[in-house]
Amino acid sequence: MINAINVTKKFDDFTALDNVNLSVQTGSIFGLVGSNGAGKSTLMRVMSGVYSADGGTVTIDGEDITNRPRVRRNLIYVPDDLYFLPGSSMDRMAKLCESTRARFDRELYASLAEQFEADRKKPIHAMSKGMKRQAALILALASRPDILLIDETFDGLDVIKRHHMREIMVDAVAERGLTVIMATHSMHEVDDMCDAIAMLHKGHINVQSDIQEVTAALVKVQIAFPQAFDEDAVRFDGANIVSFRCDGTVATVVYENDRDLVEHELKAKHPVLMNLLPLSLEEVFIYKCQ
């Protein structure tokens, strides 16, 4: 289990993270989403120990990671901007991993390289963006981490490789309880892979929960009355209207309320049409981060 507790990080006057609390269970595939500049990468760097927090702590299984490399020795961070030793090939990087990571598995490395048809001898700087990312992921997975922090996981990978990478990650999660935290812009990816997510917006976490709960938190209703109406017509005691768009006599309203409550209250107003619709993760994100 990895936790960020009241983490604050500033860069001069700019507060990138403001009292961020995050709790990720072992064996979870956790999605970290947020608008551009929300602080995802900063949070990942604090959680992996690349940056030290200005306030708060990060703990792995209860132990503080600050100044304690041993505690985070089985955590690997694959950043958005990849770094490789200048002029190195995958094999050269594998040698480095072997000497710095206790669990680096040569056989697994060779097997993964083969599965992805990676050129182990080619200088990585000469590879395409997708192939570089593939190289980084192979090296990370071959190191058998307990916790994998990835920034823009599959960026540049083609559909087939993406799928295969997912299979491998999912297998590692199932087999040995690998914990994955993936920062991403792709809601589709999160939808497919994650069991829990947190949404970061301007340095704050504004949603954190398991996937089912997040999409159940908002209710979208298509509603119509015989005459033109405004927002007051669809308001009720305790209603938390996030969005109201009316086109003459039909409106789309989004509530941050319990679904049954919304259904019950709106039925009492005798609309001529009422449909409760599910929201996609993407929609939840858009409404929550406005």
Binding site: I29, E167, V170, M193, D195
Partner: peptide, 9 residues
């Protein structure tokens, strides 16, 4: 999970 590439959870 591996067969359908889905989250084991």
């Amino acid at each position: 999970a591996t067969q359908i590439a889905a989250n084991p959870n």
